[in-house]
Structures are given as C-alpha cells and as structure tokens.
Design a protein around this nucleic acid. Structure first.
Length: 565
RNA sequence: UGACCCAUGGUGUAAUGGUAACACUACGGUUUUUGGUAUCGUCAUUCUAGGUUCGAGUCCUAGUGGGUCAACCA
C-alpha cells in the first residue's frame, strides 16, 4: 500500500485506484478493440500497451475484440495480421478473442428492447433529410416526422429491415433522445442501418448492421469490461455510451478517454498511409519506413523498445507530439544490450599494410557484445589488404580527427595499430588507396607496443569480406507534423530522399550465417537488421538507426544536411 | 456563435494545497580498443489576470491560446 502510494499514477490509474478503494469495481478488465480494416501502427501500439499494461498492473485481463460492424471494409486478412502484430509486441489475450459480430443477435435484441421502451424508432427520411434536421452546434435540430411512430409499427418496420424488405439506405433505426441536445451525438443518433453486404464472418445472415455507438459500448457490457479506454475524440460519444447502458440496463462499463500519441515526422491516418502504399511511395505496408508495426519490425525496431517507448511517453489528456529522438533512444538502448557487434564497411577504401606478409591470415578474436558477458566471441580474419571507411581517411586532417591521415596512427578494432605511410589518388583527385605499416606487437588483447592510438577504426579483410546491400532510411516526411498545415497537402512534405541504397558494402564473413530479422550493430556505424528479401547470394541489411556520435566535422557543407531540419 | 476537453523546460510526463522532479534533446567534463556504452554536470517568471488560503502548478472566477463534435465510418 505504501509502495503504491509513492508511485505516481496516470489519471486513468488514479480513477481505477479510486474505484477499487471504494469498491465501485473489484476487478479491472480492459479490451483492445481494433477495426479489422487496416494494419496496426505506432498509435495502436500505445493503445495496446495502455490496455494490456493497465489491466496487468491491477491483476486484471484484457480482451481482444474486433469491432467488425462494417462489412464492406473489413477483411479476415486484417484480422490475422492484427493478431500476429499484437503477439509480436508480446501481449497475450489468451482465449478471449471476440468479435462484435458475435453479438449481432444480442444487439438486435437490445434494439428491440429499446423500441419496446419507446426509446427508438425507425426513420425512413433520406440521409440528407436526417442531416439537415440535425441542426448544428448553434441551432437545435428538428424532430423527424417519423419520430412518433407506434411501438408496434417500429417493431414491424425494424423486422422488415432485418428481413431485407427495405433497400440499402432507405431507413435507419434511431434512438429517441433529444433533437435540441447540445451534444450533436445525442440528437437521435442512428443505431442500425440497412446494408446488403457479405460480412467476413456472418456471411449473408444479416442485411442490417449496428453502428459504432450501438455496438462498441454494448460489446463492452456483454464482456463485462470495467474500463473502456479510448482516445479523446470519443469524448462526445460517452454521453451516448452511458445513456444506452442506462436505458438497456446492462453492465455499466466505463469509458475513459486519453490523448492520442503523435510522433514527429510520422502519420497514422489509415487513409493517408494507404495512399503511400497504393501510389508506390513506399513498397508496402511493411516498408521499413512505415510507422506500421510490420514496417517497424522489418526496420529492426525490437518489440521491447516499442513498449518501453510508449510507456515512457505516458498517458494524459493534452495534445502531444513526441520527438523521434525518444523512440530512437529506446531502440538504441534495447539494441545496445542485445545486438551482436560486427564490422561492416559502408563506403570502402582500400588499405594496404605494407609490412604485413602477403597471403598471411591472422585470426583475430572479437567480442560479440561487450554489454553482455555471455555473448561469447568470434574469429575475424585479418590480412594485408583491408577495406576501411572512406570517411575514416582525410588528406588534410585536423588535429581532432582521430582517424587516418598523414602523420596519424590508429588502432584497427580487434586488430593491430597502424601508422600512415602514403596514399594514392586517381586523376580526379579521389583517394583510392591508403598505405600503412603495422606494429606486430600491438595485437589486440596482447599489446606490448606501448603505442597510444586515440582513434579506432573498423575494417574488413578484402579477401574474406561479403559484399552486401544496405538500405539506409530517413524519415518519411520532412516536417514534424505533415498534417498540421491545412493549406498544404501532406504529400508536399514527403521526403523523396527517405531511402538510400548502398550496394558496395562489405561485411565480415561471420554474417554469412545471419537469418532474416537478425539484428546487428555494425560497429561505429549503427544498428542493422537482415531484411526478408535477402537471398543466399545477396544479403540485404536495413539500417535500423545510427549510433549517436559526438564527432561533428565542422565547416563541412557536404555533411548530410538532414540532421534536424 | 454552442457544448465539451486541455494548458508545467526545446519535447513528453510527474509533483494528489507545503523545497517544481524524471526521461529525451542540446551543451560541457570523466572513462573507453566503437567519437558507441557508462558516468558526472549545465539549462524553468508552471498561459494571463483576479480570488480563496498561513501557503496555489494544484482550488474558484474570468480571459487568452489550442483541440474535439453535426458519416447510414470506427
């Protein structure tokens, strides 16, 4: 108790704690209610985590329920993808997998109950008429001419609706509340509509389908959900949610709204994401640049990092835009602990160790992960001719350049210390080759040379290296909030340089055993994940995120200009 | 012009009437065979104005700013 008191609670937990203490509720039961009409994205991750974590915290349970009341947009394909995404995130709904469509019979009975209580009526006004009779925020609505039909007539018409007597869109069932209510949603909201369509689960059994407000809350009640957590834009629906629970006299689930999470440079609108896919701005829903769970997984973001991220973001009711830095920080933190270190050269420059015997191969031992004692070591071959990174050599290197250049001495990671001798250039003045000498007594791990080398470079043996492809991703949008400017279409902010393919990358031979999804740290460069499109002949690595770097070359205009914005 | 919600460093989130804290970012230092990691440090008129109170980020009132709401979508 004293422990719990010390810990700070978010506003939802405070409500729950209160209810538990006053015995208003004795259990905590939540639900995650996706509509199966699209793929899960970063915003859903937050909703999933809040629902599952909140229940877990109070020893409760979380249901998975597909809100499948719109047969024309919903598909089983989405159901399957959503399930596997949630599992990948690490959450388990056990046997509590439900569908709103499972409750269609019950929902129909609820509707009949409402009609019998004189609280619902069938309206055969046109959609336009209904809209115009609704009024607007400043003017009250008008009662429908059909509002006072008898219970018997309503019952008959509603049954006819169910039996397919009336065509699509010809009539609806509405709640009879108050056409002058300040909350527009309470001005006789539609409950059921006629829609002749094949449902992904109920097939052609129904030609009437309940609307959100007559399905969601009722499903919560049926499942004895105690806390129905949703985003802020459903605030106005809560009045109706409560009204229906009261009139139907069913289990009093409680809706609590929290603010949606916005992440800088990302969008989470299903429709807009779909546009990116359909118009081939990205390669698919699982393109590693997409904010979808599938995309982020393929990018190499660990599930644990995503969960840490949304937990750190917290829960509140104000508008927010989370910086990408926080997400990347969580990803790096997780990967730092778990990713195997390897060496890979993204932009190769040939280096020749002039005093190293030709044909000789030194087997160097390298730690797989210095952050993990149990990760073991591996062998990396060291030879006379190596590749180093182009950017690790500079002809006119400043003092603080702890890399290679005239007069410089550096340590080759897990190898030997080498000193600059000379370099070759082509006609255009590009450096093509660097010659160095090495110190045989400076072997990594048993260095007796006494030479101090401030810089450390990564490298690969040319003879042993595997040539691979690297896909380097950048943010999909150039501004933090591409949707914020109402004057401009969000596609104006699309980052056309969001994908750079490096096809002349060389990695150490141990990577030949990598499997799709495996994550590595290319030392000094970043974290990379083997892509699913890799073949035996060609490995493809997705750059998950770069390493942080406190090295900033000054006065270099050619450095990547996409740092912040 | 209505109803409802929100307002704390650059970004998020705490502080539950009693010393404004934590994380990320940024900038410095230390350590380092990754310019990584680790570690230490630096950066605030709590939107405004009144009020209640011994005491207000917190409670009240008004203002200002932002958001949401009028699909037979969810």
């Amino acid at each position: 108790m004293s422990e719990a008191a010390k810990e700070s609670l978010n506003f939802i937990e405070q409500i729950i704690q209160d209810d538990l203490e006053t015995k208003k509720n004795i259990t905590v039961h939540t639900r995650f209610p996706p509509e199966p009409n699209g793929f899960l994205h970063i915003g859903h991750v937050k909703a999933i985590a809040i629902n599952f974590e909140t229940a877990k915290k109070y020893g409760g349970k979380t249901n998975l329920r597909f809100d499948d009341t719109n047969p024309i947009t919903e598909k089983t394909l989405y159901v399957d993808n959503i399930k596997s995404d949630i599992k990948w995130l690490g959450y388990d709904w056990e046997d509590r997998e439900y569908f709103a469509s499972d409750y269609f019979d019950q929902l129909y009975a609820f509707a009949v109950d409402l009609i019998n209580k004189g609280l619902a009526y069938v309206d055969d006004s046109t959609p336009d008429e209904i809209a115009s009779m609704k009024g607007d925020p400043n003017t009250p609505g008008k009662n429908s001419p059909h509002r006072d039909r008898s219970v018997e007539e309503n019952l008959r018409l509603f049954e006819e609706m169910k039996n397919g007597v009336h065509p699509d869109g010809s009539m609806v069932l509405r709640a009879k509340i108050d056409m002058a209510h300040p909350n527009l949603l309470m001005r006789d909201p539609n409950l059921y509509r006629v829609k002749t369509a094949t449902h992904h689960r109920t097939g052609d059994k129904w030609c009437i389908y309940p609307l959100y407000d007559f399905a969601h809350g009722q499903s919560d009640s049926i499942e004895n959900i105690t806390y129905s957590l949703c985003s802020l834009e459903f605030r106005h629906h809560r009045d109706l949610y409560n009204w229906l629970i009261e009139k139907l006299e069913i289990f009093p689930s409680r809706q609590i709204e929290f603010a949606r999470m916005n992440v800088a440079h990302m969008i989470t609108s299903k429709r807009k994401l779909l546009k990116l896919v359909e118009e081939n701005f990205v390669t698919g829903w699982d393109d590693p640049r997409m904010p979808t769970v599938a995309g982020m997984r393929r990018r190499g973001y660990p599930a644990a990092a995503l969960i840490t991220f949304v937990n750190k973001v917290g829960v509140a009711k104000r508008e927010n835009t989370i910086e990408l830095d926080l997400l990347e920080s969580c990803v790096r933190d997780e990967l730092n602990k778990t990713a195997t270190r390897v060496m890979g050269v993204l932009n190769p420059l040939k280096m020749v160790i002039t005093n190293f015997p030709e044909g000789k191969v030194e087997e160097m031992r390298a730690d797989n992960n210095p952050e993990d004692e149990n990760s073991g070591t591996r062998i990396v071959p060291f030879t006379r001719e190596l590749y180093i990174e182009q950017e690790d050599f500079m002809e006119d290197a400043p003092k603080k350049f702890f890399r290679l250049g005239p007069g410089k001495t550096v340590r080759l990671k897990n190898g030997f210390i080498v000193s600059y001798e000379n370099h070759l250039k082509d006609e255009e003045g590009n450096v093509t080759e660097v010659h160095v000498k090495y110190y045989p007594d400076s072997r990594s791990g048993s260095d007796t040379s006494g030479i101090k080398a401030k810089g450390v470079l990564h490298w690969v043996s040319i003879e042993h290296a595997i040539k691979v492809e690297v896909r380097d991703y950048d943010k999909l949008f150039t501004v933090e909030s591409p949707l914020a400017d109402e004057e401009k279409d969000f596609m104006e902010f699309f980052n056309h340089d969001s994908l750079k393919v490096l096809d002349n990358v060389f990695v150490e031979p141990s990577l030949q055993f990598a499997k799709p999804g495996d994550r590595f740290q290319f030392m000094r460069k970043g974290y990379f994940c083997l892509d699913q499109e890799s073949t035996e002949d060609k490995l493809i690595f997705n750059k998950t995120v770069g390493l942080k770097s406190s090295w900033k070359p000054k006065n270099n205009q050619n450095q990547r200009s996409n740092q912040k914005k």
